[in-house]
């Protein structure tokens, strides 16, 4: 019976590591689990860290839990009922060893990942005009609200939050292969902007302005998820994100401009109530906006 329990504990590292490796290298039945294929260079770097730390963790899991299972197999009392347990109270050298080696590994990890964090969250892209370097202006202003996404594209002036912004709801179309900056604000509660394929997530906090940037290398249709609980309709707060070629993007923007008028924008101003929990504000508002500009569904 003692052998039975040691096998049970030995199964933990065996199955655990097997399934981690299966997910990492796309082996059935876990081939589609874990993360979708990365769409950006920054995402690749995060994937390398993700996989690297998991391999390290799998190695440590194997070492420790295998030792536990082996100790159970070897030292459970069957067969040596006369023998006494070893009387060992401590071993300072061992303690120092298993403190210093993990410490070195962790220090390495800590420094190794700083660059990736800085690229993703701190080094906002810049542009240099006439020798003067400044932050790259955002292409789209994202306004998160219960329970939908508003996107305001910079109009001809190239600046968001001006009169000529182009408004689109729950659909973000962007050119692939270009560095894009988004500015994000919330109209009501905290939301979070999550695109798994871009390895991109940022909370959008009311009263604060956030910037995110990315460069998608392929044309692809993916989704934006809200990952911060924002109320009863949190689960349906999604938007489509389409990466298209530059030419398609220009044509699409031109289409939006022609459909665009000041009345549309006015009707889209939010008046949603936070306490009204049975109506989806975005659908209601979109209907009002469509009526205002005379669009039939």
């Amino acid at each position: 019976m003692n052998r039975f329990w040691s096998v049970l504990f030995l199964l933990v590292p065996v199955l655990g590591i097997a399934s981690v490796l299966m997910a990492m290298y796309g082996v059935a039945p876990l081939e589609s689990a874990w993360l979708p294929k990365s769409l950006s260079q920054a995402g690749d770097t995060i994937d390398q860290l993700f996989n690297g730390i998991h391999l390290l963790a799998a190695f440590i899991l194997a070492g420790t839990v295998f030792t536990i299972g082996w100790a159970l197999w070897r030292f459970s009392d069957r067969g040596n009922s006369d023998a006494k347990a070893l009387y060992i109270t401590h071993n300072t050298k061992l303690e120092i060893t298993w403190t210093v080696i993990p410490a070195l590994i962790l220090v390495f990890l800590a420094f190794f990942q700083m660059k990736s964090w800085a690229e993703n969250k701190m080094n906002r892209p810049t542009v240099t005009v006439d020798g003067v370097s400044s932050f790259k202006p955002p292409m789209v202003m994202v306004k998160a609200k219960r329970f939908g996404w508003e996107f305001y594209y910079a109009g001809d002036d190239g600046i968001v939050e001006t009169e000529d912004d182009i408004f689109v709801e729950n659909l973000l179309v962007l050119p692939a292969g270009e560095e894009i900056v988004l500015q994000m604000e919330s109209r009501d509660v905290i939301h979070s902007f999550y695109v798994p394929e871009l390895r991109l997530k940022q909370d959008i906090v009311p009263g604060m302005t956030q910037f995110v940037w990315f460069n998608a290398r392929e044309e692809k249709e993916i989704e934006i998820m809200c990952t911060e609980l924002c109320g009863w309709g949190h689960y349906m707060m999604k938007a489509d994100l389409n990466f298209v070629s530059r030419a398609e993007f220009d044509a699409w923007i031109a289409d939006q401009k022609s459909a665009y008028s000041p009345e549309f924008k006015k009707a889209a101003e939010p008046t949603a109530s936070l306490r009204t929990t049975n109506v989806l504000p975005s659908a209601e508002l979109l209907g009002a906006a469509q009526t205002a500009v005379g669009i039939e569904n």
Binding site: F9, V12, G16, L35, T45, I46, L49, F50, I53, H54, A57, I60, L61, T64, V65, I68, L106, L109, Q113, S116, W117, N120, K121, S192, Y194, P196, R199, L200, K201, T227, E228
Partner: peptide, 27 residues
Amino acid sequence: GFVSMFVIGGLSGIVMSAPPVDIVIHD
């Protein structure tokens, strides 16, 4: 069981303590 499960919980803690990785797995 506590010790072997704590190893798993502790190791996934190291994974998510790395901020770039946490971007993906947060929430």
